[in-house]
């Protein structure tokens, strides 16, 4: 009892405690396991994709793959992937045309013009938009936005690229706005003060100092937004339909890569058929696409990061 009251003795005992030292060694191994789990999963997915996509690429000539004729279920099937890539790019482009200007201006307002109290209310509400399940957005595009657009644009098909493109943009706004706002917010106030002290107006501070200083973060938010649009599935599957035509006409139905996968995993393609393996090929292309986008975002962040 006496011994346990002595500080130095207790500390010494604690150092010699085997159980304590065992935990020190054992617990980090659990952490390692948890950390490697996601890496292993990713590698596993890539391997599966590569393996089955290879079967597809070895059976279908390249010239056919890079053609505009996609007819996987016809008697004489053709697997041109360009209609899918085209549709993905068009819907993503429409989405970014909506998300970038609105997201950036919202971020500017929140970061540079809104009072602290207003920002504390507005930002969480805006981020709530990001929590809406995408199926709801899809439904919203199909049953609300499309009918309105049909009134404005005669000849718009019931399933078209425009409506899901716009709604995807709306879905991505909070992401672009929130990430850009974080980037602008991390620009030190000292820099704004420096600009104000030279007689800058608020607008000048925002555009000549804050945006250039936060440039890398803003660009990264754009790229991540694009990557999100490319990978988005439910909205386009519902509202853009499944016609496999190669067209730049945004009033018509077109099928994106993700929507193609949805259609074919819902049971049309029997295991082992070419159509089945084409899913893996499309999946692989999609994966490579988003991977490149994410790498690009990282590269931009590193290359243009301002050190202050």
């Amino acid at each position: 009892m006496d011994k346990s009251m002595n500080v130095r003795e207790v500390i010494k005992d604690n150092f010699n405690n085997k159980r304590h030292r065992g935990l020190e060694k054992f617990i980090p191994k659990i952490f390692l396991l948890a950390a490697s789990l996601s890496v292993v999963t990713t590698v596993g997915i890539v391997c599966t994709l590569l393996f089955d996509a290879f079967k597809f690429f070895s059976r279908v000539p390249l010239r056919e793959i890079f053609s505009t004729k996609l007819a996987p279920l016809s008697a004489n099937p053709s697997f041109g992937i360009l209609p899918l890539i085209n549709a993905t790019m068009i819907t993503s482009l429409i989405a970014m045309c909506v998300a970038i200007p609105i997201g950036l201006t919202a971020a500017l307002y929140l970061s540079e013009f809104a009072s602290d109290g207003l920002r504390r209310i507005l930002k969480p509400i805006m981020e709530l938009l990001a929590g809406i399940p995408t199926i709801v957005y899809g439904f919203f595009a199909y049953s609300f936005v499309t009918p309105i657009l049909m009134k404005l644009i005669p000849g718009l098909e019931a399933k078209n690229a425009l409506s899901p493109g716009i709604v995807m943009g709306i879905m991505i706004i909070p992401m672009v706005a929130s990430l850009s706002e974080d980037a602008m917010n991390s620009v030190p106030n000292a820099m704004r003060e420096g600009a104000f002290a030279l007689g800058s107006t608020k607008l000048e501070v925002a555009f000549k100092v804050v945006i250039p200083a936060a440039f890398s973060g803003i660009m990264a938010s754009f790229v991540l937004g694009i990557s999100r649009a490319v990978g988005e599935t439910m909205i386009v599957a519902i509202a853009s339909g499944s016609s496999k035509i190669f067209t730049f006409d945004i009033t018509r139905s077109m099928q994106t890569m993700t929507a193609y996968i949805v259609e074919f995993t819902s049971g049309d393609a029997g295991s082992g058929t070419l159509g089945y393996y084409s899913l893996y090929a499309v999946g692989l292309i999609l994966f490579v696409f988003t991977l490149l986008m994410n790498l690009l975002a990282q590269y931009i962040t590193r290359k243009y990061r301002e050190e202050y």
Binding site: P188, A197, G199, P212, A213, E306
Partner: peptide, 20 residues
């Protein structure tokens, strides 16, 4: 206020150059 600040320059506690 902008006009005033062009006539009255200010230097701060910590150097705060722009990232340019």
């Amino acid at each position: 206020v902008e006009e005033l600040r062009t006539r009255v320059g200010m230097v701060f506690q910590k150097p705060n150059p722009f990232p340019k």
